[in-house]
């Protein structure tokens, strides 16, 4: 059963922020994982980051809300310069929702409390205001009826949708998704992607690390292909996925789109 609310066509319903990343570099010791990334995301735009594992796309995403500290370059998010040493990290992060591969729901709190705790503790909303916002967002992801469940009583797909509702409850202006469907059972992937599709329609700025090429093609305004810590190719989703120009992009897409293909010629 697909219990996700569909056809919500209210583009512009959310306040959206843009992202400007300039010549970003990040190393772990002598291992440089981001080698000068420049990437702009317009307010309301949906950008998918694709590429092989180890290409730096997750690190790039995590730099945007400073879960990783970049070594060089600059990141502007909304009105904040994330790379300014004096930036109020907590204030900036309130505008940036993050969805993790492993959901990272708080296991000691119900779905509803997962969505209210940061509202009451960080935004200082009253318990009843926070609950109202949380319920609205849980209903938005199709899980209003499971608000009292604890994370271990929910399927992977439901947990991920709660995680999305939790992020949305902070009224973010930008949403970051770090391989949101990679840890899910195949039959629950669709529900999560449907929620993300609706969010994109509502005009949320989204930066999505994903291996779901179907989703990228359908929902993303732009697709960025990364490999070895650099942006190899970027452009309109349809063009990058269907007609890539770089050999590395072609190779990667062939493997992802046809995993059973065995390359005998090599």
């Amino acid at each position: 059963m697909n219990d996700v609310v569909q056809n919500a066509d209210d583009r512009g319903a959310v306040k959206a922020a843009g992202v400007a990343i300039t010549d970003l570099r990040k190393s772990y010791g002598s291992n440089e994982v981001l080698k000068g990334i420049t990437l702009n995301v317009e307010p309301g735009e949906v950008v998918c980051l694709i590429g092989p594992s180890g290409s730096g796309k997750s690190t790039l995403l995590r730099c945007v809300n400073l879960l990783e500290q970049p070594n060089e370059g600059s990141i502007h998010v909304g009105g904040f310069e994330a790379t300014d040493p004096d930036v109020d990290i907590d204030k900036m992060r309130r505008k940036v929702g993050m969805v993790f591969q492993q959901f990272n729901l708080f296991p000691h709190l119900s779905a509803l409390k997962n969505c209210t705790i940061a509202q009451t503790k960080v935004l200082k909303r009253s318990e009843s205001d926070a609950s109202a916002v949380a319920m609205r967002n849980l209903e938005r992801v199709g899980l209003g009826h499971l608000a009292d469940r604890f994370p271990d009583q929910l399927s992977g797909g439901q947990q991920q949708r709660v995680a999305i509702a939790r992020a949305l409850s902070m009224d973010p202006e930008l949403m970051l998704f770090d391989e949101p469907t990679s840890a899910l059972d195949p039959e629950t992937v669709g529900d999560v992607l449907a929620v993300m599709r609706n969010l994109a329609r509502e005009g949320m700025t989204m930066l999505v690390v994903t291996h779901e090429m179907g989703f990228a093609r359908e929902v993303a305004d732009r697709v960025v292909f990364m490999d070895g810590g650099v942006v190899v190719e970027e452009g309109v989703a349809e063009q990058v996925i269907s007609a890539p120009t770089h050999n590395r992009t072609k190779e990667f897409l062939r493997r992802v789109l046809d995993p059973t293909h065995i390359d005998i010629a090599e």
Partner: peptide, 10 residues
């Protein structure tokens, strides 16, 4: 868990 909490602005 810490990352999720920090990401929410805590």
């Amino acid at each position: 868990q810490m990352e999720a909490a920090r990401s929410l602005g805590m």
